[in-house]
Design a protein around this nucleic acid. Structure first.
Lengths: 346, 346
DNA sequence: ATGAAAGCGCTAACAC
DNA sequence: GTGTTAGCGCTTTCAT
């Protein structure tokens, strides 16, 4: 077994209480004993047992992060952000993944509660319509990451997904697009919100939304191919759009390739805007403009809010939900046509 | 406070001992009480306090994962793999990141030990030369992910990095390359091993290794630009290579772009092999051949080994270290020149 | 088949 | 300043 408080006490002929006090920085200990204790603690490499402390104090200094999956880059960013957010406060993060399974989502939450996490960060599957039932009978602070299901009235942090559609249209308009096509994502709340934003902004710009320029990929098909296929369909029509916005970056690359193969000039004849800013190919000749979704920041904010929520039992200065605005990352696929220019290295 | 064993006991007019037994599947309880207990446990939504259990049994059912960073895709894959590996055994994973800081690496380990993790998975910074000192005074099973520093004699799991260099050369040879260039990564153990493998295989194929075809990027420069610049240097020489292998995929894309811009035909005149298989652009016209490093599998294996190590106190059936072989993922950048062909969708 | 007692390592509350 | 007592929620051991 590891070394305990009692061991130090015996060694120093003190009571373990004194050791405990020193370790927690209580002031009612003489400088001398404090020094002796600290020294011995160092030497013996003592490390407090957090389980025991947690049992006594009711705080585990652990927060749970329940994710729908760990495969996608979104999750990875959230994980990084949450870690960053809790670090300054000495908290640890326990991560679980439901791997897209609704039932497991429920079990995940149970697991975290069982572990007595001080707070729970919950990120539901994109198409989840209900909150895990377990949450109804619990008192730990929960922060939802992403959009909450219907009747949820707790705290949540999310990206303003409608703005995604809005700024996309704005950006394309600024670059003189008038015939804008939209490659929808799946029929999830997020997909719908982006689309709503798109429609709103098109309307307020008094631009026509042609039915055939709104494309919907096959369910489960949101990869490169769906973008490629979509662009082919667009080019088969009488009028070809001069701007395309997609649900994610991979689709945008598909759109780009289909367009280039058909001899279209990008961005002169067709401007392409991806979404997610997930591709690291930022310096390629024809670089993809995209929309940054700030998931990392989202995770960080969620963590901060949760941590603040731990102190104030009931509601107190009740935390408010937060939403973050997406941001256009302009690159050459929506920019002017500039023959690739590079700095010489010496 | 949450609901406790005692609450159920009171409610059912039993002792908490009986409840505990039922919950842990002991057999010396009558079927009838068992049923009653289970029912009430469900209704009251009881969840055992794992801290308390851990305090008593000495097991926390938690394993620690200490990473050097959370930003890169490698980490994300390891995280996913570890999670997958522990799930079937009811373990949870606590993740920490040192964010590239050597001192924090030490503190990370301390944190995990303080949390009484049942095992620790440790992934050191690429240029770490020493094991955290804390480990010398601990007894929890440690599994090192990646290559161990010099005098480490514990268990580790790693990718066979020398094989990376070897299979790269083999693959290029099979595709009739004879003038092979190598864009080295940083001077880390991993970078060195890959290079060693490269040299070995070149030697056994009796191919010349020209000094000017071994390129080394500026320290800290392993992105797109370093590949682009490297290729420009290669093209400035008298003889241009007919095959290039890089340290990562982004560099390979840089190489590709520089080559294409200069009018070289890829793969006919120049075959390019990346490393890491990290770019999701698998379906673009000119797709990048790469080497899959199986970090996810690595994480999974590490977890499994650690879990097995928990039971067997001392050494027993002492676990052995494991290494995984990298795998070529051939695509068009090293393949024959095939004009992009695509299936029509109906 | 059920339960009482003891204790895991720690800290809050209160002596001295 | 320092030490004593009690107990967090659970399981191990041993009576009944």
């Amino acid at each position: 077994m590891a070394i305990r408080l009692q061991d130090i006490a015996d060694d120093l002929k003190l009571s373990k209480m004194t050791i405990s006090k020193v370790l927690r920085g209580q002031t009612d200990v003489s400088e001398e004993t404090k020094a002796r204790v600290l020294k011995r603690v160092q030497e013996l490499n003592y490390r407090p047992n957090i389980s025991a402390r947690g049992l006594r104090t009711g705080q585990t200094f652990t927060i749970g992060l329940a994710l729908p999956s760990l495969q996608d880059s979104t999750s990875a960013q959230i994980v990084a952000g949450v870690n960053e957010g809790v670090r300054p406060h000495g908290y640890s993060v326990v991560i679980t993944s439901a791997d897209g399974d609704a039932e497991r989502e429920e079990r995940e939450v149970e697991l975290h509660l069982s572990r007595q996490v001080d707070a729970l960060l919950l990120c539901l599957r994109g198409d989840a319509s209900d909150l895990p039932q377990v949450l109804e009978t619990t008192t730990v602070p929960v922060v939802l990451i992403g959009y909450p299901p219907a009747r949820f009235n707790g705290i949540s942090v999310a990206i303003r997904e409608t703005e995604v559609g809005q700024i996309a249209v704005q950006h394309l308009l600024e670059h003189r697009c008038r015939r804008i096509a939209y490659l929808r994502g799946p029929r999830t709340p997020i997909g719908d919100m982006r689309f709503t934003g798109f429609l709103e902004e098109m309307r307020s710009a008094e631009l026509a939304v042609k039915q055939e320029w709104i494309l919907e990929p096959q369910p489960g098909e949101t990869g490169y191919r769906s973008g490629y296929d979509a662009m082919q369909r667009l080019m088969a029509a009488k009028t070809i759009p001069d701007g395309v916005m997609t649900y994610n970056d991979l689709q945008a690359i598909g759109v780009r390739d289909a367009a280039l193969e058909a001899g279209l000039e990008v961005p002169r004849q067709l401007r392409i805007l991806g979404c997610g800013n997930t591709l690291p190919l930022c310096e390629t000749g024809l670089t993809l403009s995209s929309i940054d979704l700030a998931y990392r920041e989202l995770g960080k904010r969620a963590a901060k809010i949760a941590l603040r929520g731990i102190g104030e039992k009931g509601n107190g200065t009740a935390q408010r939900s937060v939403s973050l605005s997406p941001r256009i990352v302009p690159r050459s696929s929506t920019g002017e046509w500039v023959p690739t220019e590079r700095k010489k290295t010496k």
